[in-house]
Protein backbone atom coordinates (compact mmCIF):
# COMPACT_ATOMS: atom_id res chain seq x y z
CA UNK A 1 0.00 0.00 0.00
CA UNK A 2 1.38 3.46 -0.81
CA UNK A 3 2.18 5.60 2.20
CA UNK A 4 0.71 8.86 0.94
CA UNK A 5 -1.65 10.85 3.08
CA UNK A 6 -4.55 10.82 3.57
CA UNK A 7 -4.18 7.13 4.39
CA UNK A 8 -6.97 4.66 3.52
CA UNK A 9 -8.31 5.07 7.05
CA UNK A 10 -8.21 8.85 6.82
CA UNK A 11 -9.97 8.78 3.45
CA UNK A 12 -12.73 6.60 4.80
CA UNK A 13 -13.12 8.90 7.76
CA UNK A 14 -13.51 11.82 5.35
CA UNK A 15 -16.15 9.91 3.33
CA UNK A 16 -18.05 8.87 6.45
CA UNK A 17 -17.95 12.41 7.83
CA UNK A 18 -19.19 13.80 4.51
CA UNK A 19 -22.08 11.33 4.28
CA UNK A 20 -23.04 11.75 7.91
CA UNK A 21 -22.85 15.51 8.19
CA UNK A 22 -23.46 16.82 4.67
CA UNK A 23 -25.53 14.23 2.78
CA UNK A 24 -27.56 12.76 5.67
CA UNK A 25 -29.36 15.96 6.65
CA UNK A 26 -30.62 16.32 3.04
CA UNK A 27 -32.32 12.89 3.05
CA UNK A 28 -35.61 11.57 4.38
CA UNK A 29 -37.30 8.21 4.96
CA UNK A 30 -35.81 5.11 3.36
CA UNK A 31 -32.93 7.06 1.79
CA UNK A 32 -31.92 8.48 5.19
CA UNK A 33 -32.15 5.00 6.71
CA UNK A 34 -29.95 3.49 3.99
CA UNK A 35 -27.42 6.27 4.44
CA UNK A 36 -27.13 5.42 8.14
CA UNK A 37 -26.60 1.78 7.15
CA UNK A 38 -23.84 2.88 4.75
CA UNK A 39 -22.21 5.00 7.46
CA UNK A 40 -22.24 1.98 9.79
CA UNK A 41 -20.58 -0.15 7.13
CA UNK A 42 -17.81 2.42 6.69
CA UNK A 43 -17.30 2.58 10.46
CA UNK A 44 -16.82 -1.22 10.52
CA UNK A 45 -14.07 -0.92 7.93
CA UNK A 46 -12.41 1.95 9.81
CA UNK A 47 -12.32 -0.04 13.07
CA UNK A 48 -10.99 -3.07 11.18
CA UNK A 49 -8.18 -1.01 9.63
CA UNK A 50 -7.29 0.22 13.12
CA UNK A 51 -7.41 -3.04 15.11
CA UNK A 52 -7.92 -5.90 12.64
CA UNK A 53 -4.27 -6.91 12.21
CA UNK A 54 -3.58 -7.08 15.97
CA UNK A 55 -6.78 -9.05 16.57
CA UNK A 56 -5.94 -11.48 13.76
CA UNK A 57 -2.50 -12.09 15.28
CA UNK A 58 -3.86 -12.92 18.70
CA UNK A 59 -6.68 -15.07 17.28
CA UNK A 60 -4.10 -16.94 15.20
CA UNK A 61 -1.91 -17.53 18.28
CA UNK A 62 -4.87 -18.82 20.32
CA UNK A 63 -5.95 -21.18 17.54
CA UNK A 64 -2.40 -22.52 17.09
CA UNK A 65 -2.26 -23.32 20.77
CA UNK A 66 -5.75 -24.90 20.85
CA UNK A 67 -5.11 -27.01 17.75
CA UNK A 68 -1.43 -27.72 18.45
CA UNK A 69 -0.25 -26.58 15.02
CA UNK A 70 2.12 -24.08 13.38
CA UNK A 71 -0.33 -23.20 10.63
CA UNK A 72 -0.30 -19.42 10.16
CA UNK A 73 -3.30 -18.92 7.86
CA UNK A 74 -6.22 -17.74 9.98
CA UNK A 75 -8.87 -19.00 7.56
CA UNK A 76 -7.25 -22.48 7.51
CA UNK A 77 -7.05 -22.50 11.31
CA UNK A 78 -10.72 -21.60 11.65
CA UNK A 79 -11.65 -24.23 9.07
CA UNK A 80 -9.71 -26.82 11.05
CA UNK A 81 -11.46 -25.84 14.28
CA UNK A 82 -14.87 -25.85 12.58
CA UNK A 83 -14.25 -29.37 11.26
CA UNK A 84 -13.21 -30.60 14.73
CA UNK A 85 -16.35 -29.12 16.27
CA UNK A 86 -18.53 -30.63 13.56
CA UNK A 87 -16.98 -34.04 14.21
CA UNK A 88 -17.50 -33.66 17.94
CA UNK A 89 -13.74 -33.87 18.56
CA UNK A 90 -13.91 -31.06 21.05
CA UNK A 91 -10.99 -32.20 23.19
CA UNK A 92 -10.61 -32.29 26.94
CA UNK A 93 -10.20 -28.62 27.69
CA UNK A 94 -13.68 -27.49 26.84
CA UNK A 95 -13.36 -24.35 28.96
CA UNK A 96 -10.28 -23.16 27.01
CA UNK A 97 -12.17 -23.74 23.78
CA UNK A 98 -15.24 -21.85 25.00
CA UNK A 99 -13.05 -19.00 26.29
CA UNK A 100 -11.43 -18.72 22.87
CA UNK A 101 -14.78 -18.72 21.07
CA UNK A 102 -16.22 -16.13 23.44
CA UNK A 103 -13.20 -13.88 23.12
CA UNK A 104 -13.30 -14.18 19.33
CA UNK A 105 -17.01 -13.36 19.19
CA UNK A 106 -16.40 -10.37 21.46
CA UNK A 107 -13.55 -9.15 19.26
CA UNK A 108 -15.65 -9.51 16.09
CA UNK A 109 -18.43 -7.57 17.76
CA UNK A 110 -15.94 -4.91 18.83
CA UNK A 111 -15.43 -4.29 15.10
CA UNK A 112 -18.98 -4.76 13.78
CA UNK A 113 -21.06 -3.24 16.61
CA UNK A 114 -19.15 -2.14 19.74
CA UNK A 115 -22.30 -0.68 21.33
CA UNK A 116 -23.69 -4.20 21.63
CA UNK A 117 -20.92 -5.06 24.11
CA UNK A 118 -21.67 -2.17 26.42
CA UNK A 119 -24.71 -3.94 27.86
CA UNK A 120 -24.13 -7.66 28.27
CA UNK A 121 -27.11 -10.00 28.53
CA UNK A 122 -27.99 -10.87 32.13
CA UNK A 123 -27.41 -14.62 32.16
CA UNK A 124 -29.59 -15.21 35.19
CA UNK A 125 -32.53 -13.69 33.36
CA UNK A 126 -31.50 -14.83 29.90
Amino acid sequence: MPNDRPSPKELLEAVRDHLQNHVGPELKGQAAFHLRVAVNAIAIVERTLEDGATLNDSETARLQSLLGTNETDLDQLNRALAVKLREGAIGEDRQALLNHLRQTAEEKLGLSNPNYLKRPLDKSKG
Binding site: H34, V37, A41, E106, K108, S112
Partner: peptide, 20 residues
Protein backbone atom coordinates in the same frame (compact mmCIF):
# COMPACT_ATOMS: atom_id res chain seq x y z
CA UNK B 1 -26.27 -2.85 1.24
CA UNK B 2 -28.83 -3.80 3.86
CA UNK B 3 -28.20 -7.53 3.39
CA UNK B 4 -24.44 -6.91 3.50
CA UNK B 5 -24.64 -5.09 6.81
CA UNK B 6 -27.20 -7.47 8.36
CA UNK B 7 -24.77 -10.19 7.30
CA UNK B 8 -22.24 -8.90 9.80
CA UNK B 9 -24.83 -8.97 12.59
CA UNK B 10 -24.17 -12.71 12.90
CA UNK B 11 -21.44 -11.71 15.39
CA UNK B 12 -24.14 -10.38 17.75
CA UNK B 13 -25.98 -13.66 18.00
CA UNK B 14 -22.73 -15.63 18.10
CA UNK B 15 -21.79 -13.58 21.15
CA UNK B 16 -25.24 -14.02 22.76
CA UNK B 17 -25.34 -17.71 22.14
CA UNK B 18 -21.86 -18.29 23.57
CA UNK B 19 -22.80 -16.14 26.59
CA UNK B 20 -25.99 -18.12 27.24
Amino acid sequence: LEKAVIGRRSAETEYDLLTL
